[in-house]
Design a protein around this nucleic acid. Structure first.
Lengths: 206, 206
DNA sequence: TTTTATTCTTGAACGACGTTCATTTTCACG
DNA sequence: CGTGAAAATGAACGTCGTTCAAGAATAAAA
């Protein structure tokens, strides 16, 4: 049975990701140290590199989990029946809530800066669209005129706008809205955006 | 003349900030190293700490310059006469242009992550409101119902929304809009936001 | 079971980093 | 000049991610 070896290795991998996740959750991405992870996982320093290429990959594994949780949080925020506008508000509110309740793990998703040479592997790239997946449905009902490609583009823009307000509020360099105002300001933004989108561009000839 | 000594020191300080700015502009904030700065400034390694508390302060000095340039770029983007809506579009376009043409220095403004203990000094905090200063005028004409405090808050939200789209497009983790679409998507966002704001909340009794 | 071959695990060591500080150098003033 | 205070220097320190020769563990063979 060579299975025994791979099973133990997989165990170690899980303990390692668990440890990294716990440290990020508690102390933030910038305080994640290889020596702390291995100490918490109960293994040697070099063991990291038997389980993962890099500290960066370890971070990606944690971010992967966070993206999944965020994905389900956004999915579960939508009831079966809701107007498109209601849906946009609910999604934005869920995003705000997740960011506020999971600040350190959430900001690790966007805070990882990797060296210029290194590329993000495909398995991780593929996990990001959950951020905009739920937007597309309601948006397509607000803007039936948009083709699916334009729709995706606009969904990215809508997400980025909401994300920007949240990001600057939480990590903002003195120009973000206060946390207490975050929910209501995002609500106002979504209101403005959906109202604008509601009428759409179709009235403009140019 | 003790003036000679302080003059030389001020010279060194300038050369140091110049060097840091050049390195950030060329290679990005994450590639700014103390040893490179001093080599480029033509002085010893320890000289940094005779001129500046910290590498973080050096970065702030560079960010300070960038914020000033950005401030004038935004100011000069507005002609004497323009409708509020036009003004919002021009400001957003100017912001997009600045970020695209000064990517590394621009993202250093928002990319600096300092240790939990350290606080940003007041002289630097005070430089950030240039980001929203120009928005307030046009916004107040779009929303004459808002008090100055609410106005500032909404200006922060509008800025953060645009900033978010730019940020995710440039550093975005696979959910940002492509750079080629950035200008037009920001334009569409501003369109939606100003259209929404144009009508405002005043119709809603809530 | 014992021996051997292979594979995995370990932690000291390495190079790069920001920062410090004893030493040396500079320079305004007597 | 000589001198004392002030400033510049760069070797050295602690911390970091990563590597790799040496040792431990385990499967296969005898």
């Amino acid at each position: 049975m060579d299975n025994n070896r791979t099973r133990k290795k997989e165990d170690l991998r899980m303990r390692m990701i668990d440890a990294a996740e716990a440290i990020i959750a508690e102390k933030g991405l910038s305080n994640l140290k290889a020596r702390d992870v291995t100490a918490q996982a109960g293994c040697s320093l070099g063991a990291i590199y038997t389980v993962v290429d890099d500290l960066d990959e370890l971070i990606m594994r944690v971010n992967s989990r966070t993206l999944k949780r965020l994905g389900t949080a956004l999915h579960e925020a939508l009831p079966q029946d809701s107007t498109p506008k209601q849906a946009m508000h609910l999604l934005a509110a869920a995003y705000v809530g997740f960011a506020l309740e999971n600040t350190t793990t959430w900001s690790a998703i966007f805070g990882q800066r990797l060296g210029e040479g290194t590329e993000v592997p495909e398995w991780h790239r593929a996990e990001y669209p959950v951020l905009i997946a739920e937007i597309i449905g309601p948006l397509s009902r607000l803007r039936p005129d948009l083709l699916s490609e334009q729709l995706r583009l606009r969904a990215q823009t809508v997400f980025a706008a909401v994300h920007g307000v949240v990001q600057l509020s939480i990590h903002g360099r003195f120009v973000g809205v206060p946390k207490e105002m975050l929910a209501s300001e995002v609500d106002a933004l979504v209101d403005a955006m959906t109202r604008g989108l509601d009428q759409g561009d179709q009235g403009q000839v140019s």
